[in-house]
């Protein structure tokens, strides 16, 4: 009788010893911490600087503005892309491929709207509005473009960025970015993929250019592996 009791006691006591001396450590793998993101990566600065003055060359008192050269070298109104001086300007603005659609022929420090009405660089949005009327209206109402600062004007300043603070006027398409690291919220195993190829079943997606699409798809799936 006591033999049974002793063995039961032994089982419990052994268990207690085991529990007590078993090292206590995190019994789960921790995924590596969130990839470090530098302050620059998430800065709130606009992509381009706001230009209220035409760009110049040189510093301080030697700073020269456009017109100071251009009054010496009159331009041909028909000049389009091949430039001898401004080789760094890649004009990639769709149908709008004439310099003097935007720049004033007479005064290169000015932009031109409505035929020959000249405006300063600080009113650039009116120039863009010549073609992009719907976007301009959206922008006026704050439906297009960035608004930073305060949503409540009574508490602080609200800053609405103008066209050229995001878009390069010579090449306005928004540039591509390197994306910041994706989620790795899983503590166990590797992140799994969703986003399977539904094209076979979805007629909307079959309209897309097949060759282009396939190549990106296969490349994509390689990256996923």
């Amino acid at each position: 009788m006591s033999g049974t009791n002793l063995s039961v006691f032994g089982v419990f006591f052994g268990l207690a010893i085991w529990f007590f001396f078993e090292p206590v450590k995190e019994p789960f793998p921790r995924a590596p911490a969130t990839a470090e993101v530098s302050a620059e990566d998430i800065s709130t600065a606009s992509r381009r600087v706001r230009m209220s003055e035409p760009p110049g060359i040189g510093e301080n008192e030697f700073r020269l503005q456009c017109q100071e050269c251009h009054k010496l070298f009159p331009s041909d109104r028909d000049v389009r892309v091949k430039l001898s001086q401004h080789e760094n300007i890649q004009l990639n603005h769709g149908l709008n491929s004439w310099c003097f659609n935007c720049h004033s022929l007479e005064d290169r420090n000015k932009l031109v709207i409505q035929g020959d009405e000249e405006i300063g660089y600080d009113r650039v949005e009116e120039l863009c509005a010549k073609c992009h009327g719907t976007v301009f209206r959206d922008w006026q109402r704050g439906m297009h473009g960035r608004t930073n600062g305060y949503w409540d004007a009574s508490l602080g300043e609200s800053k609405r960025l103008v066209c050229t603070e995001c878009h390069d006027p010579h090449s306005p398409a928004y540039p591509t970015y390197e994306p910041l690291p994706g989620p790795n919220t899983l503590r166990m195993g590797t992140p799994l993929q969703s986003g399977h190829d539904e094209r076979k079943r979805n007629p909307l997606m079959q309209w897309r250019g097949a060759t282009n699409h396939d190549s990106t798809q296969s490349q994509h799936s390689k990256e996923q592996e």
Partner: peptide, 26 residues
């Protein structure tokens, strides 16, 4: 989510896209 064109069904989105540059055309 990176969504394929032609759908707004978020179940088709990719959470873990890892391209050299975004956005992707498709």
């Amino acid at each position: 989510l990176e969504m394929p064109r032609g759908t707004t069904d978020i179940e088709k989105g990719n959470h873990h896209y890892d391209r050299p540059t975004v956005p992707d055309d498709d």
